[in-house]
Design a protein around this nucleic acid. Structure first.
Lengths: 256, 256
DNA sequence: TCGAATTTGTGCGTATGTATC
DNA sequence: GGATACATACGCACAAATTCG
């Protein structure tokens, strides 16, 4: 009788299989805890464990007072991260979302501050003199069709932009047109980009801000933009791995 | 007394804070279940929940019969995925690992088969005639310092390589030298590459093969290599997000 | 070598609060 | 309001693995 594998695992596998095969389609209701206890002849602890595992695997969502349901999986969208920069003008995010038939929007909040040591290294800035304010930090939330899909924190060295028309990313003649266009406008065209991609579980706060269940997997991107002589911007981007794939492409032997 | 947040969460946060701050360094032993029950005056269920959450967050590992310990975090290594292709010869993986002072090795298993519809699309192959065998599939496990760090499944169209000295990736004069060099040898130099990056929780089997705890976050890469006229190889790569960051870089306006 | 103590994993039973329907 | 469902919390028992005298 006892097949050595835990009771809860054997039940989880049955549900996994039914969900993967489509027998339990997205939105379908899973048996309640009392029903699982009755159907499989197990205790409440096992029924709880089954639900917990399916939820942590991202296969199900629990709705208190209602039931546990097979998770609706949004279609994976692609974020093209290499070639478009050369071909698109304006906001890359908006252009890409609209090319996929989705409405793009974003919130932002800019403020000047003294760079942390970590950010100073990424921007290759000198040590600040005393309390000197040396960077502009902008926090973004990007939306597609009204749903938040990406968080971003951008840093720009103030000594580049101070006194120009593009100090504030989302104000003035170049508002909402992207870093590349703004830096070009003040004579610092971006020539090199570096993106360092990682992944991790999101914090409770990040998941809430992205309207994702707690503990969702996030893709993280550390982006660096360089002109011929300077790092002109760096940013930390975060997107739910359930929403996007990142697409990089290039030509063999094409510099780097 | 009751601050609205669950009891287990408040205890989890204390441990999280102690781990993050270094008060509980990697390898340190966390209190056992009975100790937590005593120290915090809570039930066994809460003590179990605390351990479960810390483990699922990747902050701790449980050793049955011994205790629960703060997880040892290997230093994050970078996998350079853009520029090196032009500058390195031989196995890119080996070159990169050795440049980081690590010993590289790999296992492989090649076999011919009929491509699935999905792989056929990626390789842009025509429908096979009947039972025709049309691809060579090679499963790799890559090791750094003896530890498995990357899984890869590679597909090559057999009509390109059949009858040449490079049919088998790991045999003949170009054994272990990488796809690019082998394809060049038969007159199909790779000119374009596309990598689609995602992330997800690993299956139990994947985590075991990578010597990672169950439920670890994995980075996935779908790679496509194209010559001037053909898709010459495609591969699915999987690496633990706790071990590697992927670095992509390029030049603005440089083709794509 | 053996055995006792400890620790985690699994499993059972019960109770209360709160959200949904 | 009442029934249902999930989240939280308490208590207990046993098996398997580890540790250590």
């Amino acid at each position: 009788m006892d097949q050595d594998r835990p009771l809860w695992l054997r039940i989880v596998e049955q549900f996994r299989q039914k969900i993967r095969s489509g027998e339990l389609p997205p939105g379908a209701r899973l048996p309640s805890r009392p029903e699982i206890m009755r159907d499989f002849g197990v205790s409440d602890a096992v029924a709880k464990q089954v639900a917990r595992v399916l939820i942590s695997e991202g296969l199900a969502v629990a709705k208190p007072g209602s039931g546990t349901y097979v998770r609706e999986r949004p279609q994976l969208r692609r974020l093209i991260r290499a070639w478009y920069r050369a071909t698109r003008a304006g906001s890359p995010f908006a252009a890409e979302m609209e090319s996929q038939g989705r409405r793009a929007a974003w919130d932002y909040d800019s403020r000047t501050e003294q760079a942390s040591e970590h950010i100073r290294e990424r921007l290759r800035l000198d040590e600040p003199a005393g309390d000197e304010i040396d960077v502009l930090r902008t926090e973004y939330v990007f939306y597609a069709d009204g749903e938040p899909v990406m968080l971003s924190t951008s840093y720009e060295p103030l000594d580049l932009t101070r006194g120009t028309a593009v100090v504030m990313p989302e104000e003035g003649p170049h508002a909402g047109r992207g870093v590349a266009e703004r830096m070009l406008a003040i004579g610092h065209p971006i020539v090199d980009w570096i993106e360092t991609v990682g992944a991790r579980l999101g914090s409770a706060e990040e998941c809430a801000r992205l309207h994702q269940p707690p503990g969702s997997v996030l893709l993280t991107i550390e982006r660096i933009y360089e002109s011929q002589t300077r790092v002109v911007e760096t940013a930390d981007l975060v997107v739910p791995a359930d929403l996007f794939l990142l697409v990089y492409s290039g030509r063999m032997g094409a510099e780097g």
